[in-house]
Structures are given as C-alpha cells and as structure tokens.
Amino acid sequence: MVIGLYVPGDSLLHNLSAGIKLGTLFVFGTALAILSSWWVQVGALFIVLILWKVANLGIQRIKQIGWMIPMFALMAVLVNAYLGSWEQGFVMGIRIITLVLFSMLVTYTTTLDEMTHFFTWFISPIKWIGGNPEMIGFAVSFCLRSIPMIITVMEDIREAQIARGQKANVLHLAVPLIIRLLRISSEISESLDSRGFNARSWR
C-alpha cells in the first residue's frame, strides 16, 4: 500500500531529483513557519495547487486528504484564534493544509527508491561513527511515505462508519485505525522478510 502511492508520470516534478524536492519542501516549510503574514500563506497554497496541476495529478487525489486535514486545520484555527487572534488562526489553518498538500505532492512524484537513495547519501557520514545509513535512509523515507497512507486509512474508516450511521467519535475512529495499522505493518514486515530484507542484511 505504501509503495504504491507513487504515481508514474513524465511531468517536470516527476523528473526532478528527490533531493531537490525534499530540500524545497524543507525550505518551503521553514519559510511558512517564519513568515506569518496571511497573504504569504495564501500565496504559498496557490503555488502548491499550481504544482499539483503541473504534475498532472488531478483534483481527485487532493480529495484523498478527506475530512481529517480540514478538521485539524479548523481545530488549529479555533485554538490560535482563542489564544491570539482570528488572523493567527487563519494563518495556521492554511499553513497546515499547504504543507500536507506539498508533502503529498512529493510523495506522489517520488519513488521509494529515490527517497531511500537520497537519505542514504545525505546521512552517509554517520558511517564514520559506526552508523548504518542504508537502514536509516530506508526507515526515514518509509515513514514519510506512510503519512498519506495513514490519512487514507482514516478516511476509509470514517466513510464506513458514516455508512453505518455512526456519529463522529475519536475513540470509535482510533480503535479500528490502530488495528488496521497494526495489520498493515505486519503484512509489510512479512513482505520485507520474504524478500530477505532484515537488520542483518544491512550489516
């Protein structure tokens, strides 16, 4: 499920290296955290939406974030509005949506191998202190690509609950989500083991 999130294509974003995309995501996120003007946040969201168009991913994939991210954004708006002002709340909400869309964009246009190779190269100096850059690089890239998968699972569970007439409830969502994620992690672990992927193979 996680590996299959990559969407093949020949767009400009697909052809960019993983290092450029991940570096841009880091700089982009840092800039949004520093610059608190609402027009900067709106402009950044507009830029990300343009990039989605350039990547030819389609509006349907944006809908995959479902109701969870807008809900978290709304909570951020209300909390920041209560602690500060409505403008601060608006800025935080837009910032969350923008960064999630950008991270999904990177995930959809970058293969797992590309991410793994980049992180392995980036942290290769840890070999000098006895570290294992290959294992860490795979773990980091795998975690990044798991975020959209978790959001998709949450949305599937919520849609099933709505179909059964159940009202929104954090506990009712959390329990099946944990069970589903444990099941998925077990399947992924067995799949990796069957391919000879284990801690010893990296030593």
Rank of each mutant, 00 (worst) to 15 (best):
V2P: 04
I3T: 10
Y6H: 11
Y6D: 03
Y6T: 06
V7S: 13
P8N: 07
G9R: 02
D10I: 06
D10T: 10
A18T: 01
A18F: 00
A18W: 00
A18K: 00
G19S: 04
G19H: 01
K21M: 05
L22A: 07
L25Q: 11
L25R: 06
F26Q: 08
V27T: 14
V27F: 15
I34A: 15
I34R: 15
S36G: 13
S37D: 12
V40R: 02
Q41D: 08
Q41K: 12
G43Y: 05
G43C: 08
G43R: 06
I47H: 05
L49Y: 03
I50K: 09
L51T: 02
V54K: 05
V54L: 12
A55M: 06
N56G: 05
N56T: 09
Q60P: 04
R61E: 14
R61Q: 11
R61D: 06
K63L: 12
Q64Y: 09
I65V: 15
I65F: 07
W67R: 13
M68N: 12
M68K: 09
M75N: 10
A76T: 04
V77A: 12
L78N: 02
V79P: 02
N80K: 03
L83H: 11
G84I: 03
W86L: 13
W86I: 12
W86D: 00
Q88E: 13
F90P: 02
V91D: 02
G93I: 07
I94H: 00
I94R: 04
R95Q: 11
T98K: 04
L99G: 06
L101D: 01
M104H: 10
L105H: 01
L105D: 00
V106K: 01
T107N: 12
T110V: 03
T111K: 04
L112V: 10
D113K: 15
T120I: 06
T120P: 05
T120W: 02
W121L: 08
F122R: 00
I123N: 06
K127W: 03
K127T: 09
I129C: 04
G130Q: 02
N132F: 07
N132T: 06
P133N: 01
F138P: 01
F138A: 09
A139F: 05
V140D: 03
V140E: 00
S141R: 01
C143G: 10
L144R: 07
L144M: 15
R145E: 09
I147Q: 00
P148I: 05
P148R: 06
M149T: 13
D156A: 13
R158V: 11
R164M: 10
R164P: 07
K167F: 10
N169T: 03
L171Q: 11
L173F: 10
V175F: 14
L177Y: 04
I178H: 05
I179L: 15
R180P: 00
E187Q: 15
I188M: 11
I188C: 02
I188R: 07
E190M: 14
S194L: 14
R195T: 08
G196H: 06
G196S: 06
N198A: 09
W202L: 12
W202I: 09
W202D: 07
W202E: 12
R203C: 14
